[in-house]
Write a protein that binds this DNA or RNA. Structure first.
Length: 239
DNA sequence: TGCCAGGCCCTCTTTAGGGCCTT
């Protein structure tokens, strides 16, 4: 059997204001013991993996200080109004500290796992951290299940949307979709279905967090939004 | 004023174009 370095896997999903220079509105991190990934409990009838014991979980909602795109607001059920009304601060130093503490609790090295992570979640997290001049531990690894599963299932050409993968593996749709916590659970179950291959794949193909570039560069416009600290619910910024 | 993502992958490809994937 191939020897695979001992890695802690942390599953990550973010909800955002949309697809154009997005800001994070919700972030969810889930840690599962390595043995739970490789030897999960299984349904005695179907043999399919059952949800494993989650050992650490962090879900944070935050006011993104940028108007939601209508499609994102409808999809996620979050809005600038609801988040601000509930007094949720933005992606600030407290969020950075929460992430740092969460990762520090895991037996290192940590490998973050996200679906389309290289194209979206990781560069987005990098952009948010850059804005605060913060960073993650340099030894942090990154695994993109979209890239990995496309590679492992070649020549499969069917959809690789997270929900479609879940349906394909488990024969039904996930219970929760388009909340960070719901999607991270869906991601975890998709990972479990292919866990031995993905764990081995990660050992040789995970990228370093240090190689993740921000989704977009910081601009003076970002700073002006930040400094204004407010936005109008109608969508205009700063008057 | 007007526009508004972008990287990756596949193929009817490579001097390109279109679809996928994330919200």
């Amino acid at each position: 059997m191939t020897q695979v370095p001992r890695i802690s896997f942390v599953f990550l999903d973010s909800e955002t204001t949309g697809l154009s220079r997005p800001r994070v509105s919700e972030l969810s991190l889930v840690a599962v013991h390595r043995c739970s990934l490789l030897q999960p409990p299984r349904d005695p009838d179907s043999g399919l993996p059952l949800p494993p014991r989650i050992v650490d979980k962090l879900t944070l909602c935050m006011t993104p200080q940028k108007p939601f795109e209508p499609a994102a607001e409808e999809l996620t059920g979050l809005s600038n109004w609801s988040l601000q009304e509930n007094g949720k601060p933005g992606f600030d130093q407290a969020v950075v500290q929460a992430i740092e503490c969460f990762l520090a609790r895991q037996a290192g090295p940590v490998c973050l796992v996200a679906h389309n992570g290289f194209g979206y979640d990781f560069p987005l997290l990098r952009a948010e951290l850059d804005r605060l001049e913060a960073d993650l531990p340099p030894a942090t690894g990154c695994l993109d299940t979209l890239l990995a599963l496309r590679e492992l299932e070649k020549p499969c050409k069917r959809s690789y949307q997270l929900v479609e993968l879940y349906k394909r593996y488990y024969g039904q749709g996930p219970e929760l979709a388009h909340s960070a916590e719901g999607d991270v659970h869906t991601l975890l179950m998709v990972f479990l279905f292919r866990a031995p291959k993905l764990v081995e794949w990660a050992a040789y193909n995970a990228r370093s967090w240090a190689d993740i570039l921000p989704l977009y560069p910081q601009s003076p416009r970002d700073s002006s939004i930040e400094l204004s600290g407010e936005f109008s619910p109608s969508g205009s910024i700063g008057g």
